[in-house]
Amino acid sequence: MTVTEQEITDYVARVQAALADLPPAVRDELTEDLPEHLAEVAAEADGSLVERLGEPEAYAAELRAAAGVGAGSRGRGLDRRFGAATAKLRERLDRWDVQLGPPLGYPRVTEFLRLLRPAWWLLRGYLAAMLVTVATTGGTFGLVPSLNGSELAGLVLLAGSVLASVWLGHHTPGLSRPKRRLLHAGTLVLVVFALVGLVNVDERARWGGDYGYQQISVDDRYDHVQDVFVYDSEGRLVENARLFDQNGDPIRLGYPDCLTEQDLNGAGNPLLRPYPYCPERAPFAPRPPAASPPAPGLPPLSIPSGTPTAGPEPTVGATATPEAAPTAGPTPTTETAPTPAPSRT
């Protein structure tokens, strides 16, 4: 036999292209046993199909005339032009089909794509499962299907839909026309769904689950801070203290709302002033040299059974050396002061 399957397929394609202006149902009906017919013609004698039957376009014209179907029923001129355009497009696609095949290692692109069909069936099953997932959980597009929040049920669903899709793939050619159309519509929905989902997942993957910046300095915990008071281990207020973070950046807390000499002198940015802004508002009074003060003094740190929590970060230098304790001498007023600590050394 000198006529190949390929030649038959091409001939059928060209006949169908020439009938492209007909409603698809009519066209399919006209050409449904054409491949079989061509096969018989081919088996009968030598020579190409064109030699035996004439050009496919002529064949199509004869078929059309004998069957008594004119051009499409509505809008003849427009339909015919449309038919001609689709026929030309088909022809071009057919040419590309042949031309682009060899680079892929196949005689035709369609042959290559046909091999990928089962892979598409699998993907289609997965997409259907994901669609159910999104529909039931209401929104977020993940990667693993789940049913009512259950991943196991989701996997069962996935297996079911993949099997169904593969089965459907094998039986698509046998479906009736309306059913096939329904299937194609469903496929279109799945493809759109997949594209939307892909964009969605991609966006989230790019963000890395974060918002791109770290929330640090804006923190409610320090909103109420107006001023910072630093006390040394002896409970003395440290004036002109400056705070830095680990990077050496100044830590700005609070805001100066009292005037100092500096301000009056007009020196510098008020925000760059050292702490405390307003020493006279210190919560713990600086210890008077000898006193029985009404203002509660801040006890020295070295007292072990320490004192009500010292509010503003006095933990600086918490490891106050015992030697420091004796220097508490100058302020021996409080009973707790007697420095028991040194005995430990």
Partner: peptide, 8 residues
């Protein structure tokens, strides 16, 4: 013709 028969 082949096509004529099929069309008929």
């Amino acid at each position: 013709g082949d096509a004529s028969v099929y069309g008929t």
